[in-house]
């Protein structure tokens, strides 16, 4: 007989559920918790949407463009945006379609950002994990080196490399990546210091696993959270660095283009041809804004104590 509160009914239902094995109450895992927090962060979700839209458009849209980035329209030099000639964002002094060039430039900036971030994250993780795991004197020397590097204006060294070995995109990727790893190394070292005291690392050590394998197999996989956060925060910095170099004429070269190159070209002629500056500036700022919000959102989601 059912009780007045209906407690028995609920308990019976619950027991049946348990017996079926479906919908058994699950403990919420950390990552699921983090995902829930991220989904609730409206700024971060909008940013993810914006960023995905920019990336997809930059890589898919060129296939459908009426004009190619290097194609000269001899009938439309310095044309303001004009839907009739299919120059939706106008053309530059050389009669090239700005929309096509903008898409190519965005692509270039995204590629540089991804490759350079990969380089910087790889160096940072390995350096930080080795310093943290080795500890003692090795750690002290390695981190002192990082402190020293922090103070140096490494952008100058990238410029020197670019000047001396030519302005090849690959060099740009590696050069920028090689200067942005310091913060990552510091964070990874801090995490490693606490990870290496954990039982599973001790177990691995006791069973005779070599230090390098412990670092790569047991420590690095546990660093995913902070690494993801700081990789997201590194991308906008790299995009800024790349466009900075391109703006100064030391980065991506014609006929290739990047957002920095486009902004540099547009800034000089803004008074007469404002349509050349506004679109690349808007895309760049949108991308940086979105990445910053995503990075902050991820940090809040994965690392609640940092709030």
């Amino acid at each position: 007989m059912a009780g007045i509160t209906g407690k028995d009914a609920i308990l019976t239902e619950y027991a049946e559920q348990l017996a079926r094995g479906a919908d058994a109450p699950k403990g919420r895992s950390l990552s699921r918790d983090a995902l829930r927090r991220l989904l609730r962060n409206r700024a971060a979700m909008v940013s993810i949407f914006v960023l995905v839209a920019i990336v997809v458009i930059a890589f898919v849209a060129p296939a459908f463009m009426p004009w190619q980035p290097r194609q000269v329209d001899w009938s439309a030099f310095r044309s303001p945006p004009n839907a009739d000639t299919l120059h939706y964002l106008g053309t530059d002094q050389n009669g090239r379609d700005l929309l096509a060039r903008l898409l190519q430039g965005t692509q270039m900036s995204i590629i540089v950002a991804i490759v350079a971030t990969f380089v910087s994250v790889t160096i940072g993780i390995l350096y930080g994990a080795i310093a943290g795991y080795m500890g003692g004197r090795v750690d002290a020397i390695m981190m002192r080196f990082v402190d020293m590097m922090y103070a140096l204006p490494y952008i100058l060294f990238v410029i020197i490399l670019v000047v001396i070995f030519g302005r090849k995109p690959i060099l740009l990727f590696i050069g920028i990546g090689a200067i942005e790893w310091l913060t990552m190394a510091r964070i990874v070292r801090g995490q490693t210091l606490s990870l290496k005291e954990k039982e599973f690392v001790e177990a691995a050590r006791a069973s005779g696993v070599r230090p390098l394998s412990i670092i790569l197999r047991h420590i690095v996989p546990n660093l995913t959270g902070p690494v993801v956060i700081y990789a997201t925060l590194t991308i906008p910095e790299i995009i800024i660095t790349e466009s900075f170099l391109s703006y100064l004429g030391l980065g991506v070269q014609e006929p290739q283009t990047s957002l920095g190159t486009l902004i540099s070209d547009g800034a000089g002629v803004f008074e007469v041809m404002p349509w050349l500056l506004v679109p690349p500036a808007v895309v760049l700022v949108l991308m940086l804004l979105a990445l910053t919000y995503i990075g902050d959102g991820l940090r809040d989601a994965l690392d609640p104590k940092d709030r």
């Binding site: 800024i240 540099s264 803004f270 500056l277 700022v285 804004l289 910053t292």
Partner: peptide
């Protein structure tokens, strides 16, 4: 936010 997001060359222009 404005200071950190807008790159200096854009801000200058």
């Amino acid at each position: 936010m404005i200071g950190v997001i807008i790159p200096n060359f854009l801000m200058a222009s």
